[in-house]
Design a protein around this nucleic acid. Structure first.
Lengths: 211, 211, 211, 211
DNA sequence: CATGAATGAGTGTTCATTCAT
DNA sequence: AATGAATGAACACTCATTCAT
């Protein structure tokens, strides 16, 4: 009942519930996770949940929105400012991939929620997740466009297709690295982030035949 | 009163229900699709569903199993038998990609069910889908191993990682081609299958810098 | 397709279904036995059941009615015609008990249906079974009244109470002999019918202290 | 806003539901009683039932377990400690019978559930009831064994058979006294408990011919 | 802030019964 | 006589949400 307690308690509880929720959503899926599961794990009463969140839907949307912001920030840091050699390009791409992989690794549950969770939720949830995916793809696209603009990449191909391919590469590889092909939450990454990042960057520019 | 009627009626009803079900599962998601939606669309009574399927779960599993088989068959046809030039490699990969894209295009709902539908179903469903994803990745891996064996590809990279990257590329691109980044069922492919296939194959071997 | 087949086939099928039905009703209980269980055991189609019986209820009622008739006939044969010594009385009672026990033993399923099956069925069934129980009690009562009339038994006690007690004795002992205290259909009688009959008759007239 | 309200409300609701449930189960039979009947009678919503009981099955099992305990306690109080005359024996047996009859009379619905309700429930329910019947028979058996041990009863007869006969006598007579031969819930006992008890005890030791 | 009892609409599944063939 | 697909009313149970305390 100290002065600060109310506000902090508040934030703490809310965060606790969100942490528990992502975890459960990731493990059991959103529709299979009951509010009662969340409050049981938090050790509070059913009604308490509704003091912090308007509804079950609200907590996912909040979770996705938070994740969206943090993820986009990581990607945004990789935006190319000036021209450079092919080697520069590969280096900075490797850096971006590594940042992404590390972010993903320390946010497994969020990743699962955003990239594995499918159509179980209602429209609002689906569209919140969609926005994130679209934003990611656009970020990659801007980077490609910038590189073409700087003459670092050939320009004979459709930008949309290329960024779609690139995003698939990155998103899918991260997902498989974290959860395996089977989307198994108990799967553990077999290789360190930097190895995967280096290989991803190499593949990005040179493909399977790349030296 | 024809001889075939009973048997065919049977198979017909079953197929009709499965067709309606994939469609609804793809559009609204598995948990949001009620048995009553399915039977209403089929114009039969609620109980009729249970004459053909033991449960709601059974129909998805059946759907996934069917899709698994057909999909693997398409991929299996792309298995490399003998060595060849780089050009041969790109050509046959282009062929495989095109087959896959065409299969996917004529099985949109199935694709959505298997690659977008996420954690809505229970464990049994999830694992049926997992098996398919794993089988696909293994099929790609076998192809890569074979190519290395035939000295068509360099062998300095981890097979698991490479096939994971390649599968991500293909699966993600197909998904984005069919449904857009936002997993939108009403999205229509913007490019013809052969254009995407050619670009995929080129990217596969040469990456972004590829000629 | 012989001339007799239709009629005989008919009676045979009907009997077969009834035999299977008592058995299943006895084992799983009336409400837990599905028509589909019965027809599956008979190896015929669902619809066939309804050619022989109007409804599920009808078959039980039929079963109970048949049992009622046969059971009452056994009891009726024990009706006392003339006076005699105490020994005569015990002897003829022993005979009746033995007949009853033997009838019960060769009609286990029927016994279970009539004496264990409870309120699961609807009113019509309950009252069919009730009629049988009441008839049995009345048969015993007539025998007691007759014995009193013939001065073979003292008459200072309420007839209704005495016959109620006697019927309880007999019905309960038969039931426990056949199925054990736990109403277990797989229970097997531990003693031969005549031993139990003798003891029952002795108890009937002399109680626990009887020589 | 009293201190006790929450806890007592809880216990109260639970008890209320159980009281309503026995009554309905006794009147209409377990399978014919819908959860909606119970909650309607209690004036609460459907979901409330499931706050207190896991399932429909659980409430019967609870009911039977409670009844089992209370019934066995009544019988247990009749356990013979020391030897005595025949008259003592009859007196204490009369006392036990009276206690049982009175217990039964003030627990009509429970009696109906346990001794009339038959095979309607599933295996778990049946076995809970069986346990009770078996426990009752064993309690009677212990009493007989004790009496033989104390030389109060002759020992030339199988204990199992004798206790089976005795239990049948008691259980059946109680059932007929309360519900008539027809298991009719609206039947009212025609004689006072002590009269029936006296006659039961007399019959127990002397049979029909008993002075 | 927190509790937890109460709500009630919603949904998967069962099963006796019907009927065209 | 027999089939078996089709029917549809019935029912147990779930769970997000509310609200008095």
């Amino acid at each position: 009942m100290t002065l600060k307690s109310s506000k902090e308690q508040d934030a703490g509880r809310r965060k606790q519930l969100m942490d528990i929720a992502v975890q459960l959503f990731a493990q059991k899926g959103y529709p299979n996770t009951k509010i009662s599961d969340i409050v049981a794990a938090a050790g509070v009463a059913q009604g308490t949940f509704y003091w912090y969140f308007k509804s079950k839907q609200e907590i996912v949307i909040q979770l996705v929105a938070d994740g969206h912001a943090r993820l986009l920030q990581v990607i945004g840091q990789g935006y190319r400012k000036q021209s450079g050699t092919v080697d520069d390009m590969v280096k900075s791409s490797t850096k971006l991939m590594k940042d992404l992989l590390e972010f993903a690794e320390s946010n497994r549950h969020l990743m699962a929620l955003m990239f594995i969770e499918g159509s179980g939720g209602d429209e609002a949830i689906r569209s919140a997740i969609s926005e994130t995916r679209i934003a990611i793809e656009q970020a990659f696209r801007r980077n490609i466009e910038r590189a073409v603009e700087l003459k670092m990449l050939p320009d004979h191909i459709d930008f949309a297709l290329r960024s779609s391919i690139l995003t698939s590469l990155v998103e899918g590889t991260i997902s498989r690295w974290l959860f395996g092909a089977g989307h198994d939450m108990s799967h553990k990454p077999a290789l360190p982030a930097d190895v995967v990042a280096a290989e991803l960057a190499r593949f990005e520019f040179f493909g399977l035949l790349g030296s």
